Simulated assay, not measured.
Amino acid sequence: MLDSHQLRVFLAAAETLNFSHAARRLHMSQPSVTQHIHNLEVHFGNPLFVRSGRKLSLTEAGVTLLPLARDLVQASVHADEVMGALKDEIHGHLWIACSTTPGKYILPTLMAEFLKKYTRVEATISVTHRKTAMDWLNEGKAQIMVSSVYAYHADIEFHKFVSEPVVLIVPRNHPWAIRGMIKLDELRKANMIMREESSGTYAVVRDGLARQGFDIGDLHRVLTLGNSEAIAFAVQEGIGVGFISMLVARRIVCDQVAAVRVEGLDLYQDIYLGQHRHLPSTPAQVAFWKIATDSNSAALKRIENYLTMPQVVNENIINES
């Protein structure tokens, strides 16, 4: 007779294609993993893996079993969590896929309140590409995703979480740092460090400039980097100037760079939460979503206060809180 533990072992082996890696993931011994797989193969009367030296691959039977096993394991976990919730004990594992840099700095504040209230929940925040986060959500691997881009999907419910300022940062010794504000056309003279064109930050800057009749292609780009932290450090090293999340600027390089306003240009990046509309929600997922979307949540108020754009225009803008 099948049991959910055997199927969990199969999933770990199928996802890693390595029995030793699966054993480490499950905190088991490698021989125990091998035995569980053997028992499943005997049960189904079909080999599930092709073993070629140290390499593993799924057989046709293994490929067929994979989505079925995933559904059964998820159903088993959901049953445990729902029945536990009947005893007013929300527990289980909450997995959040985060595809936006600001989300990495916002989520811990929210998670602190959540885990303090629900002490029997274990949480994982995985930072990945937007497409991967969406795939995980659709497959039921992750229960919630955080993204800076609203990507319509019929099966996913999106909720606007917060709006965060995107600011222009310059080295502390840059002439703009003393002035605190520049004209829009002055951007043409700067060495720009920018995000890749598929990023949410790039889209915010591109659209904000376009509203002012400014083509982002007119900027003198000297360097393209894949995340806001890298831009912050590149600005700190004097390579150029760049637009990044204000939260990243404050958390990472607040003492080494200055934020400068661009006249007429106010940039904000919306951060969204997403969850699947049709897959069953776990009690931990429901509880987290409730805290995250509650306008009276203490954690949300702290986040919103921290993300309020300062009114003082000078080189200390980043250090204000």
Rank of each mutant, 00 (worst) to 15 (best):
E113H: 02
E157H: 11
T293W: 02
G140C: 03
E164M: 07
H174N: 07
E113F: 01
L223M: 14
E237M: 13
L94F: 00
R195W: 03
T34R: 12
S198D: 10
W289C: 11
V162Y: 04
S52L: 07
Y105H: 15
H220A: 12
A22V: 07
F233N: 10
A12C: 09
E197G: 06
V313T: 15
G240S: 02
P102D: 04
K116H: 13
A230M: 09
A97R: 02
V262K: 09
S295I: 08
R302Y: 05
S321Y: 09
L56F: 03
S76Y: 13
E60Q: 12
L86V: 06
S245W: 01
H91E: 14
E60N: 12
F161D: 06
D3N: 15
E229Y: 05
K290L: 00
K116Q: 15
V166L: 03
S126F: 09
K116P: 03
I178E: 15
K290P: 03
N305A: 14
S198Y: 10
F10E: 02
A61I: 00
I216N: 09
E186P: 04
D80Q: 15
E186R: 09
N39P: 01
V166F: 03
K87P: 03
L86S: 08
V121A: 05
L86M: 11
I178D: 14
C98T: 02
S147K: 00
T128W: 05
N138D: 08
A22H: 05
L137V: 05
L2K: 10
L26K: 10
K301Y: 07
Q74F: 04
E81N: 11
L40I: 08
N305G: 14
R120K: 13
L307A: 10
R120T: 11
A259R: 03
L137F: 06
R172A: 13
N138V: 04
V313Y: 03
V204Y: 02
H153R: 11
R51T: 08
K87G: 09
H38D: 11
L58M: 12
L273E: 12
I156G: 10
N173K: 09
F288H: 08
S52A: 13
G103I: 01
K55N: 08
M309Q: 06
R24I: 08
Q236N: 08
M111G: 08
V63G: 05
F243H: 07
N46Q: 14
N173W: 03
G92Y: 01
I106K: 05
F243G: 12
R251S: 11
D71M: 07
H220I: 07
R211L: 04
H43I: 04
H129I: 04
G240Y: 01
E164C: 04
V50E: 14
V312W: 07
S148W: 00
E196Q: 11
E113G: 02
H78C: 10
R277C: 11
H278L: 08
R188P: 02
T16F: 03
I144P: 07
E89N: 13
G140D: 02
R277N: 10
W289R: 12
C98R: 00
K160E: 12
Y152E: 14
G238W: 00
L107G: 04
L48W: 06
Y118L: 08
D80H: 10
V260S: 10
V167L: 08
L7S: 09
R25A: 13
F10M: 00
V235F: 03
